[in-house]
Every structure is written in structure tokens, then in C-alpha cells.
């Protein structure tokens, strides 16, 4: 496929539906949403959709080494125009869990502006409502989500209101984990 393929066919409508899925996922941690409409080289459908929905020329992106290929850089440049930067300058980061670390290298926000922190788009093999127990804003009682490293999210929660926000992607499935969520096990 060429760098010109894999974008939204009807950007305003598809981006709006994709954003609603991302919003529901972020506002209700543990909820798994399904999205369609985009395909970047080497990425899941969900990660591609999230990129097209949120990323543009004003949002520097870090590409972890497991996804950083010329084909993806070309696709990102054509469809979003986002500059590719190092971890410390990134508003968004993309890759597998192991390759994305260390998490401390990303902007965590400041006490006055905790929103100036990175959002990590994490490619995972499996995304199910099982495993780590989630509680907090957006969750009525509790939720469960397969997470690669629950301990990292506990440490992230401990710095609230600073911290990173995560979007996990597997195939066309997607789930959000904001910094406000308490993670156990």
C-alpha cells in the first residue's frame, strides 16, 4: 500500500464517529470500543483511527522503535503533517508497551497546567475485560482490563493530577485509561 492509502474516505463524519468512540473509551475506562475507517502501514486499525482523529501539524508525535518505519513516517506526514520528535517533546506517542518506555521521559504536565502531558497510543496483542481491576471517575463500580503493566499505572496515578493518558489498541478495538483511574492487580 502507498502512503496515500488508508485515510478516512469521509473525514468529517468518520472523524466525528471515531472521536465519540475515543471519548466514550476515555470517559469510561475499561469500556472497549470498536472503530473502523483508517489503516496506517504496520499499525492496527484502532491506532490508525486515533492518529487521524487527534493528530495534526500542531501535535508532535514520538514513534517507538518497533513502529518507526519509513512507510509509517510517510503515511503520518501525508495524512496528518505531524512532526516526529523525541519522547520529551511529544504530545502523542505510538508503539508497543515495551518500546514506549521509559514513561518518565514523556511530558507529565505541570502543576499549573497538568493538561500539557503526553497521550500514549499503545499497541497491544490482546484487549479484554479481564485482569487488572479499575476504579475511579467514569466507572460505576469497577471495571477490568488486560493491561501490560498495572504497576506502571499505579505509579502514574500517584502523580495525579499530573501524569500520562493511555489509549490501548488491538485490531479495531480500543480502550482508554486516563491518569485518574486507580489500578489494582
Amino acid at each position: 500500500m502507498s502512503a496515500l492509502d488508508g485515510g478516512f474516505a469521509d473525514a468529517p463524519a468518520e472523524a466525528s464517529r471515531a472521536f465519540r468512540a475515543v471519548l466514550e473509551a476515555m470517559a469510561r475506562p475499561g469500556r472497549i470500543e470498536t472503530v473502523t475507517g483508517a489503516r496506517a502501514p504496520g499499525l492496527s486499525v484502532a491506532a490508525s483511527v486515533v492518529l487521524l482523529t487527534l493528530v495534526d501539524g500542531t501535535t508532535p508525535v514520538f514513534l517507538a522503535e518497533d513502529v518507526d518505519r519509513p512507510a509509517l513516517r510517510q503515511w503520518l506526514a501525508f495524512h496528518t503533517g505531524a512532526p516526529v520528535v523525541a519522547r520529551g517533546a511529544a504530545m502523542f506517542a505510538l508503539g508497543g508497551w515495551a518500546a514506549l518506555g521509559p514513561l518518565a521521559a514523556y511530558p507529565q504536565g505541570s502543576p499549573e497546567y497538568p493538561d500539557r502531558s503526553a497521550s500514549l497510543i499503545v499497541e497491544v496483542e490482546r484487549l479484554e475485560n479481564a485482569g487488572a481491576r479499575l476504579t475511579g471517575p467514569g466507572i460505576e463500580a469497577e471495571a477490568r482490563l488486560t493491561l501490560p503493566d498495572p504497576e506502571a499505572h499505579r505509579a502514574n496515578r500517584a502523580t495525579f493530577p499530573l501524569g500520562l493518558d493511555f489509549i490501548f489498541c488491538a485490531g479495531s478495538r480500543m480502550a482508554g485509561l486516563p491518569r485518574s483511574t486507580r489500578v489494582e492487580g
Binding site: M26, A27, L54, T59, D115, G138, F160, P161, D165
Partner: peptide
């Protein structure tokens, strides 16, 4: 993007 950060905080 602002809405998502608002939801997260």
C-alpha cells in the same frame, strides 16, 4: 484533544 484532557483530569 482539549475535551479528552478535561475528561482525564
Amino acid at each position: 484533544r482539549a475535551i479528552l484532557k478535561g475528561v482525564a483530569i
